[in-house]
């Protein structure tokens, strides 16, 4: 698929007035995230990688945003959301239990671990999780639908859309301090904003 914002790289503004020092440090840390798990076991890690690939498939013509690493970081550092559904265990426990249960479901249905299934079969199992159809003792009473909605989806998609690569794809202006924006109206754009291909405005 053609780039919607060809040539736009939010990081090219790194040394402009759009980025202040705290922002540079935060983005540097984000880009330098360790790729090896600190929280998940090797089995959990493989399942998590496969889940991330289905929840947020990425183009092959660039290095992928390391989504499993961001999930691992959140669990390892205990970065909480500020709330937890009463029916869900604490976030780390939920992930461990959910990934193991998903793998059990894969083996039961297809005699293979989740990460070895075809993308179609993986999608199908994730859809069953989304609609609450997966159950069994390995879930430990945790509703799979809640796990999907409140752990799987936010932990993976938030990590993706917090990454500069994603900002380039959607044409987001990105960091903006001290310089913000001047041209505010419809179809108006500052010179330091992304140019959309095939848009007349």
């Amino acid at each position: 698929m053609a780039d919607r914002y060809p040539g736009y790289d939010v990081q090219s503004k790194r040394w402009s007035q759009s980025w202040n020092e705290p922002t540079r440090q935060v983005i540097d840390r984000r880009l330098a995230i360790p790729r090896e798990p600190r929280f998940f076991s090797p089995d959990e890690w493989r399942t998590l990688q496969a889940v991330c690939d289905r929840i947020m498939p990425q183009p092959t013509d660039r290095p992928p945003v390391p989504l499993p690493a961001f999930v691992d970081q959140k669990m390892a550092d205990g970065l909480l959301d500020g709330y937890r559904y009463a029916a869900l265990p604490p976030q780390g426990d939920a992930w461990r239990r959910g990934l193991a249960a998903l793998d059990v479901a894969a083996r039961q249905a297809h005699c293979d671990p989740f990460h070895d299934l075809t993308p179609d079969r993986q999608d199908d199992l994730l859809r069953q999780m989304q609609t609450g159809e997966l159950a069994g003792p390995e879930w430990g009473g945790m509703p799979c639908k809640l796990f999907f909605e409140h752990r799987v989806i936010p932990d993976i998609t938030h990590a993706y859309y917090a990454h500069p690569v994603a900002w380039n794809e959607i044409g987001f202006g990105g960091p903006a301090s001290p310089r913000g924006y001047v041209r505010m109206g419809l179809d108006r754009r500052d010179p330091w904003e992304a140019v959309e291909a095939n848009h007349a405005g």
């Binding site: 980025w19 202040n20 705290p22 922002t23 935060v26 917090a162 990105g174 301090s177």
Partner: peptide, 9 residues
């Protein structure tokens, strides 16, 4: 000195 332009941070 403490605030980045970043949702996650």
């Amino acid at each position: 000195e403490d605030f980045a332009s970043d949702e996650r941070e």
